[in-house]
Simulated scan of single mutants.
Amino acid sequence: MNSINEKQMVTYIKDLVEIPSPSGFTERAIAYVAEVLDQKEVSYQLTNKGALLATLPGTDNSRHRLLTAHVDTLGAMVKEIKPGGRLKLTMIGGFRWNSAEGEYCKIHKADGEIITGTILINQTSVHVYKNAGDVKRDDDTIEVRIDEPVRTKEDTEALGISVGDFVSFEPRTVITDSGFLKSRHLDDKASVGILLHIIDLIQDGKLTLSHTTHFLISNNEEIGYGGNSNIPAETAEYLAVDMGAIGEGQSTDEYSVSICAKDSSGPYHYKLRQHLVELAKVNGIDYRVDIYPYYGSDASAAVRAGYDVAHALIGPGIDASHAFERTHVTSLKHTAGLIFHYLQSEMV
């Protein structure tokens, strides 16, 4: 684990979270990944859905591994321009409006121009609305206050804003002296940054993998079907690298790698899960086995799509998922360490 560079992982993650990429609007984030792979001389292809599939050769080319992490995030889209010029939104991904209330945002116009705004409830001022704190936060009460002098629907339309424009949330990334990484969209750009650093270690160290390995950077996970295609026929093991969910009753924390035993899709492959646990034990990697009750991954999407693979799910522990997320660099390090050793091990 001494070869793992925490600073490089954090740099990748910080770069990625600052690129707006709600599901359906991920070209720039995928392009960033492609640029990193170009520098490392790693071959890859872009899929019809806009994802990226990179491949590194291994000793065994008959049975392949595939690792995935997703670059798409939560976000929104303009549903309606209201009579007063503000915007009504529709969600992209599964979150609660209260977790986005008060957040700065960007409206991405069709011509590429960006207009900023703030996501607010339509009865914000406590000096005007007696029950402002009690109003239900939903599609009808949440709106975007645009940072332009608009008073009517026509004023907003004149700016070039229209129904279907993507709306991204500001990440507000902070790296603390105590080692915490605070930001929106650590789900799942933290894992993408980890995989990019793993590729660094393999390429820079000229390491030989036990099996030919594919890295799928998916772009539709938040809406349920990111990693359910473009899986090479030789793939026998499929490892999703995604956030570990933290909360009451969970064993996952912000300092270890989380190994998922079961989520809403059902149990993950038992022998592969146990293989990951044994690798963690042997190599001194701090881990937690956990169950995520309201969760689904690209690996479970692939199995549901009919792929005959042993599937598993691991990832760094992320606090306050789908809201104001946080993890610690030690969790990134332990997750990277487990992946590093897994890629050099034999299949189960």
Rank of each mutant, 00 (worst) to 15 (best):
K182C: 13
I194G: 04
N2F: 09
H269R: 03
V10E: 04
I217H: 07
I202C: 11
K333W: 13
V277P: 01
I81S: 13
E325H: 02
D298R: 02
R184A: 02
I142M: 14
L343K: 10
L46T: 14
A305Q: 11
E80P: 02
T176C: 03
K82D: 08
A190C: 12
V167A: 11
V257G: 02
V329P: 02
G85Y: 08
D253E: 05
V71D: 08
V33R: 09
T118R: 08
G205N: 07
H341S: 13
A69F: 03
I121L: 04
K106H: 09
D290H: 06
G193E: 05
T208G: 08
I161Q: 12
N98C: 01
F340K: 03
R304K: 15
K82H: 05
Y307N: 07
V257T: 10
N220S: 15
K88Y: 00
A110S: 15
G117V: 12
T152W: 02
T141M: 00
Y129W: 10
E346R: 03
N228D: 15
T327R: 02
S62H: 08
Q8G: 00
L53W: 08
H214T: 06
K109P: 11
V277H: 05
L239W: 09
G24C: 11
D319H: 06
K182Y: 13
G247I: 01
E222M: 12
P22Y: 00
P267F: 11
E103F: 07
P57C: 01
I291F: 05
S345I: 08
D177A: 13
A302Y: 10
S331C: 12
E222H: 10
K106Q: 15
K281N: 13
R63D: 10
I199N: 02
I142C: 05
D15H: 12
N122G: 01
I114G: 05
S265M: 10
T156L: 04
A110P: 04
C105K: 10
W97R: 00
S162G: 10
D200N: 05
T90G: 11
K82P: 01
S258I: 06
A29R: 10
K182H: 10
P316T: 02
A280D: 14
I217D: 08
Y292W: 11
G306Y: 03
Y342G: 04
V42C: 06
G179I: 01
V17N: 09
K182V: 12
E27T: 13
K109M: 15
E35Q: 14
T213G: 01
F324L: 14
I223V: 15
H211Y: 10
K136G: 00
P171S: 08
H328G: 00
R184V: 05
A29F: 03
E35T: 11
A245W: 03
Y292D: 09
M347E: 04
N48Y: 07
D165A: 09
G296M: 09
L201S: 12
M347R: 11
E254C: 12
G317Q: 07
I19C: 04
Y307K: 04
D155R: 10
A69L: 06
I199A: 07
A69M: 11
G24D: 05
L37R: 04
P232R: 00
L66E: 11
K49F: 06
A301S: 15
Y129E: 05
